[in-house]
Nucleic acid binder design. Structure first.
Lengths: 196, 196
DNA sequence: TCGTTTATCATGCACTCGCATGGTAAACGA
DNA sequence: TCGTTTACCATGCGAGTGCATGATAAACGA
């Protein structure tokens, strides 16, 4: 068995174990032993791929970012109009089903953790401008297509849209909203921005 | 010294020590020893007022809620028009200066922690409906006064407003926005909802 | 065949954790 | 004056922590 091992696969495996631990018991419960057990490998094996706990968390954080990015790209590509892209992207970021709740729980845990760990904050900041400019771009396209009101500032609207989504995520994970209410709220918000 | 001691004051003192620990080193670093040291008292004394770590965290969480509620009430009372109340309330909830950043850092930590601790989630849910109905009420008053567009749904707008604020908090604490950008974004959002 | 490399493991170390316990000193009522 | 109550403290225990280390086994190149 030794010698030929897919390192990336192993790292991904570890990262996903970290995700499951965070999801199940919270960020405080993440330890090398706990993650090793969750990953079904010995602690030594985990240490072979990850030299420190902080690095392990960074790995898990990067993986979540990649995962979400891929999901958004797939969903967005399936839409026809800019407004549909915008709406579908936002819906993808909200905790509307089990998998999206899973992603957002972990995301929120890292959000809080990033406030105290600068390394994590740096990783967290990577994806943000990309997503924001994508949203703004789609917003502008929707304006050009006459789907959204032309007088609105696309850059500010994109920021508001994403902030709104993040706030809804927080509220929903604490137990304030049902998925139906969340979707309705998004649609209300977008409808208000329509052209006409 | 024994016998006559203000229990509430002691609890508040402990809660504030918890806040400082969370703010400085994060939720993971909260321990009975760390908090006792921060509070300038022995571990035994802390245990006398708080039987368990979970109870200690709940105490700190409730205190934060009370604190924020008081701040909002004070600021809101100083305004003249409903729209001013709305704007001032929102500004009070955003991390625009050191003290508001302090409050929001701790709030975000509890937000994430609540996802995993049901007791904390329950405590977290207490203040939410109160704040939301207050915002909706002010929104309606502003509509009646002709400050905000009459066709908007006040309840939904209140939810969006608060979600927006929470999302901005997240983003700002991770390092995306400056206080100036935050304030500008809020004003842009409100201006868009104006009557006329 | 042998030595090197790669992957994995078990174990140990110093430390911290939450929590329980037994003791102590000060103030009060009887 | 004495015993009870209130407030506080020091200490100990078992468990878990991140990390370092030395051993081990399998595959390869020479």
């Amino acid at each position: 068995m030794p010698k030929i091992v897919d390192h990336d696969a192993r790292r991904r495996h570890i990262a996903e174990a970290v995700h499951r631990v965070i999801h199940g018991k919270g960020m405080d419960s993440v330890s090398l032993r706990e993650v090793a057990a969750e990953a079904g490998m010995s602690m030594g094996a985990v240490q072979y791929y990850v030299t420190t706990k902080e690095q392990m968390l960074l790995l898990a954080l990067e993986r979540i970012g990649i995962w979400i990015g891929e999901r958004v790209a797939v969903v967005a590509a399936r839409q026809s109009t800019p407004l549909d892209v915008l709406r579908a992207t936002m819906l993808e970021l909200l905790p509307l089903d089990e998998e999206r709740s899973y992603l957002n729980r972990i995301g929120l845990a890292f959000q809080a953790s990033s406030v105290v760990s600068e390394n994590q904050a740096v990783a967290m900041r990577m994806g943000y401008p990309v997503l924001l400019s994508f949203l703004a771009e789609q917003f502008r396209a929707a304006q050009t297509a006459g789907q959204l009101a032309a007088h609105l500032n696309a850059d500010e609207e994109a920021r508001i849209l994403y902030a709104f989504a993040q706030g809804i995520v927080n509220a929903t994970l604490v137990g304030h909203y049902t998925p139906e209410e969340v979707a309705a709220l998004l649609d209300y918000h977008l409808a208000r921005l329509r052209a006409g």
